[in-house]
Design a protein around this nucleic acid. Sequence first.
DNA 1: TATTGTTATACTCTATAACTATA
DNA 2: TATAGTTATAGAGTATAACAATA
Lengths: 153, 153
Amino acid sequence: MAEIDQTAIRSLRSLILAGERYRQTVAEQTGLGITETQAISSLITYGDRGQHELAVDLGLSSGASTALVDRLERQGIAERYPHPTDRRRTLVRLTEQGLDVVRRSGDWLAAALRDVVPPSEMGRLAETLTTIAEQLNQESSRLAAKEDVSREA
Amino acid sequence: MAEIDQTAIRSLRSLILAGERYRQTVAEQTGLGITETQAISSLITYGDRGQHELAVDLGLSSGASTALVDRLERQGIAERYPHPTDRRRTLVRLTEQGLDVVRRSGDWLAAALRDVVPPSEMGRLAETLTTIAEQLNQESSRLAAKEDVSREA
DNA sequence: TATTGTTATACTCTATAACTATA
DNA sequence: TATAGTTATAGAGTATAACAATA
């Protein structure tokens, strides 16, 4: 059992590394920075959001988030638009050009998923990957919260 | 079919994002930088290597690789040792302290894998994750090579 | 000649902190 | 008072290029 767990941990570690290498490749292929392509991924995955929420999601400070969205706008990848009721907030959405990056990079991800399981099992695999992502996010949140507590102590 | 593919692509994208957030959390929890923890992951996953191979793996320049290994040595995480036959090369290996980071961060990964599939299917899941990682790496290599060609043209 | 690694310089990106506007 | 976002400054990390040592 423990042996299988170690194998599973190793497989997830290698997938995370492969994801980071993919991220660099996407950045090089599109001429964008690492953080820009992460923001694009985050926006398409979780939808339009305010800069603050985007910053928290990517682990950035508010100042870095302002600079990030500045770069995205300058490159025509995303754009700011006002929050309908809260005039403090600025929401961010992908432009057509940003969606094009999503489509191209999505094709490259599809290549990584080709033939790993029979088509009939692809739906179940997707559910499994999503569950792992959710539990990994939960674990990250748990650890980040623990650090905050120790800081206050 | 195409619909399932889009779902699968979305699930992989979210897992890659979760992996990047996990990376940041590990860096914060250990007091190391992002690149340092990537190097640790790479060394434990693919074994000891020369600085050049490590640099290629992480997408770094040779100068950045020197600075990286300098930092790892200063923090007691890894150490240089001479290649047995090629005196140009310097190999890098994790110290006991580096292995401790591997163990701690491995526990956090284990938490993400808990209960996603029955124990009897964990071995098969590990194989699937490893295959996805390999194919994603292949795709990254293919794209990087394509860029090199276009540069020469 | 090609490869591995080091050094020096400039640049990009981010954190911090002080600030404005709105809730 | 608290929150969202901007700006200015300083610092960390990287790419580039020139270099030394070895294959």
